[in-house]
Amino acid sequence: MRFKLHVWRQSGPNAKGAMEAHDVDGITPEMSFLEMIDLLNEKLLADGKEPIAFEHDCREGICGACSMVIDGVPHSPERAVTTCQVHMRSFQDGDDIHVEPFRAKAFPVLKDLVVDRDAFDRIIQAGGYVSVNTGGTPDANEIQIPKVAAESAMDAAACIGCGACVAACPNASAMLFTAAKIAHLGQLPQGQVERGARARAMVEQMDAEGFGNCTNHYECMDACPKEIHVEWIARMNRDYLKASLTAKD
């Protein structure tokens, strides 16, 4: 198979970027998308040119490092996959393929397809946890948790923090990411004590990072490789409003 790849190249955070076209051939349908880029990078390197910088690590769809937009869709037009799980058999021989970094003010480009997603870490730091220290916790079976609640919490907890939701959102909003963590902990008894405070702190941090607002396009849900549902955003809204209305400060 052969393809014409149009890739975003940007030499540094403050540099101006542009699309650069490359012909790649000798691609087999079994290759993963990242292996196709590996091959192109080998070729660039042999020519003494700088390879395309891109983030990847586990290559099995769980670490959340992938951060490219392929043909206008974060990760790829295929549903419920990360870029590393996309195979070249999903494309037609001879296709033009466009590859760009996730774009958002809160995710500045560091180089080529590599973006800085520290904003997500700061949202978690603001309150995405249960405040328990190591040790002194009760026996794990002390508190029963209904199976459905645990499963539902797990649905929300499956988020891999890749940022595709932000990349897909027409407003570059981080609500799906933030809501997923609030819903994960908010559905478990252990997360109840700080439920309201957590929602407020995380939403405030999310806003401070410069993400956009949710206007209910739901693009995030379709782009999410783990199919996290927008119902968590509604839940976050509820938790946040209730907490704000009953806050004592």
Binding site: H6, W8, M19, V69, D71, G72, V73, P77, H98, E100, R103, A104, K105, A106, A168, P170, N171, A172, S173, G210, F211, G212, N213, T215, N216, H217, Y218, E219, M221, D222, A223
Partner: peptide, 23 residues
């Protein structure tokens, strides 16, 4: 604020779910 949240537009962007009404 939403426009400011994405200062650099995508070269190619394809929407999957949103509607004309929403946009």
């Amino acid at each position: 604020a939403n426009r400011a949240a994405r200062p650099d537009a995508y070269v190619v962007q394809v929407n999957q779910r949103t509607t004309y009404a929403a946009r």
